[in-house]
């Protein structure tokens, strides 16, 4: 399964001030700004292939079932999550150290042809989102045969 990056829609007037860094500077804790590259914003994924299915396991702790949105469109599987609670927590405590923040993210995968889109199953347990994508047999294209005319 190959991973395809999801690009932000490009604005017609790209600007130095448009990337949100100023916003981050004023709103995020300073630690987070200076460490910006180090804060993990996107959870890690393990992908395993068995004979019957593909299994994705996403390490996204601290979320709830309802925060996830999983879409299979064309041959693209998109998993996104949005968690509301985070803002409140930040108010009553100041971060001394921040290495992860999984409150809003999205990841996409290109699915191979032999996936059964209708039977994708997902479960959130113990901080891991597990997605099982069953395989189906792909009918091989019919073989060409040339018939000679008698």
């Amino acid at each position: 399964m190959e991973n395809r990056a999801v690009d932000k829609p490009k604005t017609s007037w790209p600007s130095f001030f448009d990337n949100g860094w100023m916003d981050k500077f004023f709103n995020a804790p300073l630690d987070e700004f200076f460490n910006y590259g180090k804060v993990l914003n996107v959870p890690a994924v393990n992908v395993t292939e068995t004979e019957k299915d593909f299994r994705l396991s996403i390490a996204a702790p601290g979320l709830e079932k309802k925060d996830f949105k999983i879409d299979a469109y064309d041959d693209m599987l998109t998993i996104s999550a949005e968690h509301e609670k985070e803002q409140k927590e930040e108010k009553d405590g100041r971060f001394n150290r921040r290495e992860y923040n999984y409150s809003s993210w999205s990841r996409s995968f290109t699915l191979p042809e032999n996936c059964d889109f209708g039977k994708i199953d997902a479960e959130y347990k113990n901080g891991e989102l597990k997605i099982v994508i069953p395989k189906i047999e792909v009918k091989e294209p019919k073989k060409m045969k040339t018939i000679s005319v008698n």
């Binding site: 390490a59 405590g93 001394n96 290495e99 992860y100 901080g127 891991e128």
Partner: peptide
């Protein structure tokens, strides 16, 4: 630093306590 085998950690401080939160899914 956190890596693929070391979980990430958030540490915050309130008036009465320190809170360490470690993102280590899939364990017991």
């Amino acid at each position: 630093k956190p890596s693929s085998s070391i979980p990430a950690v958030n540490i915050s401080k309130t008036a009465v306590k320190y809170v360490i939160v470690i993102a280590a899914p899939g364990l017991h």
